Measured scan of single mutants.
Amino acid sequence: SISSRVKSKRIQLGLNQAELAQKVGTTQQSIEQLENGKTKRPRFLPELASALGVSVDWLLN
């Protein structure tokens, strides 16, 4: 799922939720909701993929 991929990649990069949120241009709460499965397809998906160094396709599939 996107939530597990985001969380595992974030941890692999040594980032906390607030640091990832800053790179993406969103809030820590938005990252938390995404990782908890409350958000399925965030509006900041391209920025998120870029910050994590992955493709949008990788996040979604």
Rank of each mutant, 00 (worst) to 15 (best):
L59P: 06
V6W: 00
V56K: 07
T39G: 10
S8Y: 15
S30E: 15
T39N: 14
K38C: 11
G53D: 09
L48S: 00
L13E: 04
I2T: 06
A51K: 05
E35W: 02
P42W: 13
S55Q: 07
P46K: 15
S1A: 11
L13R: 05
G37Q: 05
A21G: 05
K40D: 12
G53T: 04
S1Q: 10
A49V: 04
T27S: 12
G25R: 06
E32R: 12
A51G: 03
K9E: 03
L60C: 10
Q33V: 07
S50R: 11
S3V: 05
K7V: 10
I11N: 08
G53E: 09
A21I: 01
K38L: 15
Q17N: 03
L52T: 00
S30Y: 15
V24Q: 02
L13A: 07
V24H: 03
R5E: 02
T26E: 07
T26C: 14
N16L: 07
L52S: 02
R41M: 14
T27C: 07
T27Q: 05
Q17T: 15
S1M: 10
N16I: 06
L60I: 14
Q33R: 14
F44K: 06
N61A: 13
N16F: 05
T26I: 11
F44V: 03
E35K: 02
G37A: 07
I11D: 07
R10L: 02
K40V: 13
Q28C: 09
S30K: 14
Q33Y: 12
S4G: 11
A51R: 03
S3H: 11
Q17E: 09
Q28N: 06
P42D: 03
I11F: 08
Q28G: 06
E47V: 08
S1Y: 09
E32K: 12
P42R: 03
I11E: 11
L15P: 00
Q22T: 10
Q29Y: 14
R10T: 09
Q12L: 10
E47G: 09
S1L: 11
A49E: 00
Q29P: 07
V56W: 06
S3Y: 06
Q12I: 08
L59Q: 00
R43A: 15
R5M: 08
G25H: 07
A51C: 07
Q28F: 09
L13C: 07
N61Y: 13
K38W: 14
Q22Y: 10
I31T: 01
K9R: 15
S30F: 14
Q12P: 01
I31F: 02
A21R: 02
S4A: 14
E19H: 05
G25S: 05
K23M: 15
L60K: 08
E35Y: 00
W58E: 05
K23R: 14
S50D: 12
T27E: 05
K9Y: 05
Q28K: 13
A21D: 00
Q28A: 13
T39V: 15
L20A: 01
E47R: 13
E19D: 11
K38E: 14
R5P: 03
L45W: 05
V56C: 07
N61W: 11
G53H: 09
V54K: 01
K40W: 13
A18H: 11
K9Q: 08
L52Y: 01
E47K: 11
K9W: 04
I31D: 02
R5D: 03
